[in-house]
């Protein structure tokens, strides 16, 4: 009886495992399957599981339905541009917070922490007004500049920099290294792990971001991938879901690939704030 009970329990758990993983993974599979179906097959009810014939050209169709090379370029420029600025501003700020004693340090750091908690969605309106005053609306600058400094990045880097032994920095000073050099040649390499983690976080966030480009851009030249993809959804309801799903593959597959190879880093990056 006991053994039977244990077997029942094990099978029960196996069923649960399969069910839960289906709930979270199958939608992605369904996205891929739909992407390769013909339109009539998409609108078949009940739906077929596998496409009757694999329509690889759907991806091409989606790609050619708009200026996707431009979107891709813009997405890449924005994601890397933001990351570049964030590291450029974050490393010195974190170094100062971690390694110098100065008047107002606690206050300034508290302000940084507040910036960590309040999301930009809440204050998009005044920033939009600001941007339009500077004539930067509908340029890539309006997508990059507001994210030029990351409170999260400063917070993470400060944590690492605080753990570097004093003597290492002192040795570098005796070796006649400038503070700037200490920052970039000694401290930054020691924070490599965190820089990668943060880099992944920032890149994925801005690669995925929909809200900000939606607000700030309205011409194709400066739009990013998520905007382009969302426009594959026709407003009248009679959508070509196969093309729309194929387009979304372009957005999703790179991230899933990165996730596959750097799973631990990414999970760490996204859950770091909880520690």
């Amino acid at each position: 009886m006991k053994i039977m009970g244990r077997i029942a329990l094990k099978t029960g758990e196996a069923v649960m495992l399969i069910a839960v993983s289906l709930i979270f993974v199958f939608p992605f599979i369904w996205m891929a399957l739909t992407a390769f179906k013909t339109l009539p097959e998409v609108y078949q009810f009940p739906p077929t599981l596998l496409p009757e014939s694999w329509q690889i050209q759907n991806i091409v169709k989606a790609w050619e339905s708009g200026p996707f090379p431009t979107y891709l370029l813009n997405s890449t420029l924005v994601a890397f541009g933001v990351l570049f600025l964030q590291i450029l501003t974050g490393v010195p700020a974190a170094y100062a917070f971690a390694r110098y004693k100065f008047r107002g340090r606690n206050l300034l750091f508290a302000l940084t922490l507040i910036a960590l908690m309040i999301p930009p969605q809440v204050i998009f309106l005044p920033i939009y007004v600001e941007m339009s005053n500077w004539g930067l609306v509908d340029t890539l600058w309006s997508l990059i500049l507001p994210y030029g400094a990351s409170a999260f990045g400063i917070f993470l880097l400060r944590q690492v920099f605080m753990q570097v032994p004093d003597e290492v920095i002192e040795a570098a000073r005796l070796d006649q290294a400038s503070e700037w050099k200490i920052m970039w040649r000694i401290m930054a390499p020691m924070a490599k792990h965190v820089l990668v983690t943060f880099g992944l976080f920032s890149f994925i966030y801005h690669w995925n971001d929909y809200f900000w480009p939606l607000i700030m851009t309205n011409s194709n030249e400066v739009r990013t991938l998520p905007i382009g993809i969302s426009m594959l959804k026709a407003s009248d309801g009679g959508s070509e879901w196969n093309i729309a799903m194929a387009g979304n593959m372009i957005l999703v597959v790179p991230i899933l690939l990165i996730f596959f190879f750097a799973q631990r880093h990414i999970i760490q990056a996204f859950t770091y704030q909880s520690k």
């Binding site: 032994p165 003597e167 290492v168 002192e170 040795a171 570098a172 005796l174 000694i186 390499p189 020691m190 490599k192």
Partner: peptide
């Protein structure tokens, strides 16, 4: 123009 040797060596760990 002086050099110092530290108790915990203080080598640059990334070099």
């Amino acid at each position: 123009d002086l050099a110092m040797v530290f108790q915990n060596y203080a080598l640059y760990p990334t070099m």
